[in-house]
Simulated assay, not measured.
Amino acid sequence: MSALRKGFRFLFQALEWFAMICMVILTIIVFIDVILRYIFKQGFPWTQEVATLMLVWFSFIGMAIGVLEKIHISIEMFTSKLPEKAIAVLESVDHVLMAVFGGLMIYYGAVIMNMTKLSTMPATKLPSAVLYIILPLSGILVLLNAVLVAARQNTRIFPENAPEKEDSENA
């Protein structure tokens, strides 16, 4: 079981790094393009497509990571006043809905990729499916993360500061 946990930990750390790299590339490309356009009155024709690609990939990977870490925006004003059993039921429904959403992303992402596989992006000449491949991939991650979070409800999957929490509870 610990090998599986280490494997998941490695996978999601790699995803976090990939998301960070996408954001860095996005920032650098947009910065260079702004400088070139405003100072030199000329830019590269491919920057908008690559920046869009990096933004989409970053967003969908970030969404999958947010499901795992339970860091999405939520309204607790109403649920905090409910009994614990009602909160548990709502969290279970939440996990099921996230898993269904992940499944829909897988299905419709594959449909969109199939529809765009023959077209290319105008500036980079990459297949348009490159932009949409992240939909089924992040759908798989959202589905997997929803199941992982549901299995370990009320506990973090990868506790970062576990020894510190124990020390603070004992104090």
Rank of each mutant, 00 (worst) to 15 (best):
G66C: 14
G62T: 15
F60M: 07
F12H: 15
Q48M: 12
I32M: 01
P45V: 11
Y38K: 02
P45R: 12
C22K: 06
Q42K: 07
R37H: 01
V67M: 11
V24F: 10
I21R: 07
G66P: 11
L15G: 09
M54V: 08
L26T: 03
G43H: 02
F10K: 12
M23W: 05
E49S: 06
C22T: 05
Q42L: 09
I65M: 13
F31Y: 05
T47L: 08
G62N: 12
L53V: 13
R37E: 01
W46G: 03
R37Q: 03
K41R: 13
L55V: 02
S59W: 11
F18Y: 13
F12V: 12
S59E: 02
F10Y: 15
F12D: 10
I28Q: 00
G43K: 00
Q42T: 01
A64S: 15
V67C: 14
M20K: 03
I35T: 08
W17T: 12
F58V: 08
A14E: 04
D33P: 01
G66I: 14
G66R: 14
M54C: 11
F40N: 04
I21V: 15
V30S: 02
A19H: 09
I32W: 00
V34P: 00
I29W: 01
A64M: 11
F58W: 13
V67Q: 13
G66D: 14
V30I: 03
F60I: 06
L11C: 14
C22A: 03
A19R: 03
L53N: 08
I21H: 09
E16P: 07
T52C: 04
T47Q: 09
F44P: 01
V56S: 10
E16I: 12
L53Q: 07
L11G: 13
C22S: 09
A19K: 02
F12E: 09
L26M: 14
I29F: 06
R37K: 00
C22V: 00
L55S: 10
Q48T: 06
T52L: 03
V67W: 15
G62L: 12
I29C: 00
L55K: 02
V67R: 14
D33S: 10
F10A: 15
E16M: 12
W46I: 08
V50Y: 09
T47W: 02
I32P: 01
F58H: 11
D33G: 04
G43S: 04
F40I: 00
L11D: 13
I61L: 15
A14S: 15
W57V: 08
V56N: 10
M20I: 07
F18A: 14
P45M: 11
F31D: 02
I25C: 06
G43E: 09
T52F: 01
W17G: 04
I29E: 07
V30Q: 01
M23Y: 03
C22D: 03
W46N: 10
T47C: 08
F58S: 08
I29M: 05
S59M: 10
L36M: 05
E16T: 04
E49D: 09
S59V: 10
F18C: 09
I29T: 07
V67F: 15
L55T: 03
I28A: 07
I65R: 14
F40P: 00
I35N: 06
